[in-house]
């Protein structure tokens, strides 16, 4: 079976681990538990007649305590930048991570705006998101809590991996 590596990147507490947990196990926990280092999960995905195995790398949030490590992107077929819908700063940080990743690789990237189940914050303008999402291969608004768009997003990433 074909294996494809994808990486989830983003600032801390944007919901990377929760997205994976929802995708792999179909569960969600409200309690924030910070990730240290990396955790790799596997999931088999059916893409038409073909079945592929996605290796989903959940990478520790990039912030003052943990820098961006380009080596994690080695061998990846796509990466996902996750930002938090309720924290405008996370979009800015996500874009900085995106730029750093682009210096390492030219694989496709997807922007994921997570936590859409929470109320929209007034300091986040649609225009800001629109402008930035054009820089990505695709953009999804997800809720790891309700599961909204989570499968669709990973499915799209899998397709991007195969288009590679």
């Amino acid at each position: 079976m074909i294996q494809k590596k994808i990486c989830l990147l983003g600032a801390s507490a944007v919901g990377k681990t929760s997205l994976i947990k929802q995708y792999i196990e179909g569960v969600f926990s409200d309690k924030y538990l910070t990730t240290l280092g990396v955790k790799v999960d596997k999931k088999q995905v059916q893409l038409g007649p073909r079945e592929i195995q996605l290796m989903v790398w959940d990478i520790e949030g990039i912030d003052r305590y943990c820098g961006f490590q380009p080596k994690y992107l080695r061998g990846a077929s796509a990466f996902i930048i996750v930002v938090d819908h309720t924290r405008s700063q996370s979009l800015q940080e996500g874009m900085e991570i995106f730029q750093l990743a682009q210096e390492t690789t030219n694989i496709p990237a997807v922007l994921v705006i997570n936590k859409t189940d929470l109320p929209e914050q007034w300091h986040w303008t649609e225009h800001e998101v629109e402008t930035r999402s054009h820089m990505f291969a695709d953009c999804f608004r997800t809720s790891a809590k309700t599961g909204e768009q989570v499968d669709a997003m990973f499915q799209a990433v899998a397709r991007l991996c195969m288009a590679d």
């Binding site: 801390s12 507490a13 924030y32 240290l36 405008s88 300091h123």
Partner: peptide, 27 residues
């Protein structure tokens, strides 16, 4: 891991709360 996670957990909660507060206030 458990020890380090506990420390980082506090530090990150602190960072996020602070960032959020700043952003909302400034706006």
């Amino acid at each position: 891991y458990a020890r380090q996670q506990k420390t980082l957990q506090s530090a990150r909660e602190l960072l996020i709360t602070n960032d959020k507060m700043l952003a909302e206030q400034e706006y």
